[in-house]
Write a protein that binds this DNA or RNA. Structure first.
Length: 638
RNA sequence: GCCCUUGUAGCUCAGCGGUAGAGCACUCCCUUGGUAAGGGAGAGGUCUCGGGUUCAAGUCCCGACGAGGGCACCA
């Protein structure tokens, strides 16, 4: 005789066990039609599962987050249903939901082609239209094994092996197709409407590169066709912002076969890069850092001592000279320890903050390379802080301030923070791990920041904080980090003399705010969609005359702007003004200065903003004060 | 590194067994035009590279390299 409490507080008595669907029916046929799953005392169940005890029940529909997730999950099964009809020999592995959609990993003798994909999609549509009921059956482990042995599904059997004896196993019957799942699933395919299969790619079984590679079919699904359309539009929008595409359009940089994963920066791209580098350089100097420069190629023995050789030798570029082997540096830190080690340090010298915009090379796997985002040659806004254990928290604290200040300069206001703690394989005593993890957490808490704990995700040498920013279309990019390192200073024999005259090993903090400049430029290109704030714009202002009679006057203004340090461009081509305006608008130049006879006579200029606004006929002086104030804003959102 | 897709003019792309195409860009000429494309002419390609099949290969097959999408990796 269960008593069911609904979300609005109302209660309903039932004489017998009752399913979510029956409760929904008792409320109204509309709700029954919309019901996708039940949430009973916080647990999601299928609409047909009987509820035996007094419970709170929330009837899940496509409007709920759980509803759309259930729909996506059922779509994954539907892939299975369609694939097994079209390719009976296919073996189904796993079909989970992911952000915005779902996938299914499948083993099949032939690779699925785009034609196969659309065939599968069409078959799914046909199956949906038959509005069949999805039936669930709770079975014993033995019965599940029998079912999938009979159906020759080795991956399902392997999954079952890892299910405990007493755990419930549910089989979902999609007509003749059977899948195994925790559920819940939609009661009928009538709930499966707005979807699209997106792509097929490879994926390792159980995510392990030693295992067989399966074929993964990705799909997206939404509760309405409108949402599906909006999602596809969002993808289009992201594609339009692709930094590789904009980089080409704006001639910022290029790559070529002869140096995969390394960037040829063109004048305009390098201008952006340099604004970033000079900006960070200025900030570091103001915050007690000293800039250094260390060698590009360093003898293998140093990397052996630092421990990198053993772990990363395959990912390092090497070169030889006079029978010595060198590694092109993949990171700056061991060299920074060498600088620290010159001259015995006192506790009075600490903290010592050494910064370097050092070019690093890592031979990343070819499949990992991606435009500016993942490269083989990069420069970080890298620095290492050598300090005593007691100084960790204050150093971390001021670093956090720096990170927030810098991100704000680019208009990034939404910052996500993660704290990663000791992994199973690690160096250093429990005591020092306790201390450093606490120092990091305390530094965050003292600022009342929200952060996520990632237990066991720290580096083997120490815990770390990672800072991610959200760009204007909601994508998250991990950029900043501060990592405590108790290992390297010891391995490379860094030392200082403490208050008691004893030799001690300093703690080393690895830290970066932007991460790699290459990647950060890429992020900015996508964030701004190429429409950089004046501060960063590779060309800030372009000058053009109405006719070539105005060329000398144009050049005069141009020279004044260049002398002031602005990035200006002169366009004296024999083209009509409309044509030039179009081109420079497409090049996303913030200001276009146009002068004709009138302006020349008046000793004035006419300014057009990127959005098409006419800023009127003004003097060069007032334009300079305008651009000055724009630059001073940096990229901050006002 | 692995799976799939892909590589034609500076760019974007068409051609998919029978002597290389378009638009834009480029060069030259005309045009000197006031806020998102003025007109004309011309030049430009060992069709990524190396093999193979064929009377004949951008076109089909194999391999290498690069790129794209995933997976794995990311000190």
């Amino acid at each position: 005789m269960p008593l069911i409490t609904l979300p609005d507080g109302s209660k309903k008595h039932f004489h017998n066990d009752v399913s979510t669907m029956e409760v929904a029916n008792s409320i109204g046929p509309g709700l029954a039609k919309a019901a996708i799953a039940g949430c009973v005392n916080g647990n999601l169940i299928d609409t047909c599962i009987p509820i035996k005890n007094d419970s709170s029940l929330n009837i899940i529909t496509a409007k709920d987050k759980e509803g759309i997730e259930t729909i996506r999950h059922s779509f994954a099964h539907l892939i299975g249903h369609a694939v097994k009809q079209l390719y009976p020999q296919a073996k189904m592995a796993i079909g989970p939901i992911i952000e915005d959609g779902f996938y299914y990993d499948i083993s099949y003798k032939k690779p699925f082609t785009p034609d196969d994909l659309s065939a599968i999609e069409s078959r799914m549509e046909e199956l949906i239209r038959s509005n069949y009921d999805v039936k669930v059956k709770v079975v014993s482990k033995e019965e599940a094994i029998n079912t999938f042995t009979e159906r020759e599904e080795p991956y399902k059997l392997e999954i079952i092996k890892n299910i405990g004896e007493n755990e419930e196993i549910k089989l979902y019957y999609h007509q003749e197709y059977v899948d195994m799942c925790r559920g819940p699933h939609v009661p009928n395919t009538i709930h499966l409407r707005s979807f699209k299969l997106m792509k097929v790619s490879g994926a390792y079984w159980k995510g392990d590169s030693n295992n067989e590679m399966l074929q993964r079919i990705y799909g997206t699904a939404w509760s309405t066709s409108k949402e599906l359309k909006e999602y596809l539009q969002r993808l289009d929008e992201a594609e339009k912002r692709d930094h590789r595409k904009i980089g080409k359009q704006m001639t910022l940089f290029h790559t070529q076969e002869e140096s995969p994963g390394m960037i040829f920066w063109h004048p305009k791209g390098w201008a952006i890069y340099q604004v970033l580098e000079q900006y960070i350089r200025g900030i570091l100097i103001l915050n007690g850092y000293e800039e250094i420069r260390t060698p590009q190629a360093v003898d293998r023995t140093l990397w052996e001592r630092s421990g990198h050789w053993e772990k990363f030798k395959d990912e390092m570029f090497t070169t030889t000279s006079e029978s010595r082997e060198y590694a092109i540096k993949p990171m700056n830190c061991p060299c920074h320890v060498q600088v620290f080690n010159q001259g015995l340090k006192s506790y009075r010298d600490l903290p010592i903050r050494l910064a370097e915009f050092g070019s690093c090379h890592r031979n990343e796997p070819s499949g990992a390379l991606h435009g500016l985002m993942r490269v083989r040659n990069f420069v970080q806004d890298d620095a290492h802080i050598f300090c005593g254990e007691s100084q960790i928290q204050s150093e971390v604290s001021s670093f956090i301030d720096l990170v927030f200040m810098v991100y704000k300069s680019f208009g990034f206001d939404s910052i996500l923070i993660k704290l990663s703690t000791r992994p199973t394989k690690r160096v250093g005593s429990e005591e020092i791990w306790d201390k450093s993890e606490k120092a990091l957490a305390d530094a965050l808490d003292a600022k009342k920041l929200k952060w996520e704990l990632l237990p066991g995700e720290g580096a083997f040498y120490g815990p770390k904080i990672e800072f991610s920013l959200k760009d204007c279309i909601g994508r998250v990019w991990q950029c900043g980090t501060i990592q405590v390192d108790f290992s390297m200073p010891e391995r490379l024999e860094a030392a200082y003399i403490d208050e008691g005259g004893k030799r001690r090993t300093p703690v080393m903090l690895h830290r970066a705010i932007l991460g790699s400049f290459e990647r950060f430029v890429g992020i900015l290109i996508e964030h701004y969609a190429g429409r950089f704030p004046v501060w960063l714009a590779p060309i800030q202002v372009v000058l053009m005359g109405i006719t070539d009679k105005n060329a000398d006057y144009c050049e005069e203004i141009y020279n004044k702007l260049i002398k002031k340090g602005y990035r200006a461009e002169l366009d004296l081509r024999n083209e009509k003004i409309g044509f030039k305006i179009r081109e420079h608008t497409l090049q996303k130049i913030p200001f276009q200065i146009i002068v004709g006879d009138k302006e020349q006579d008046n000793k004035s200029i006419r300014v057009r903003a990127l959005n098409g606004d006419d800023l009127g006929e003004i003097t060069l002086e007032s334009f300079i004060s305008l651009i000055e104030s724009e630059v001073a804003k940096l990229g901050r959102v006002q």
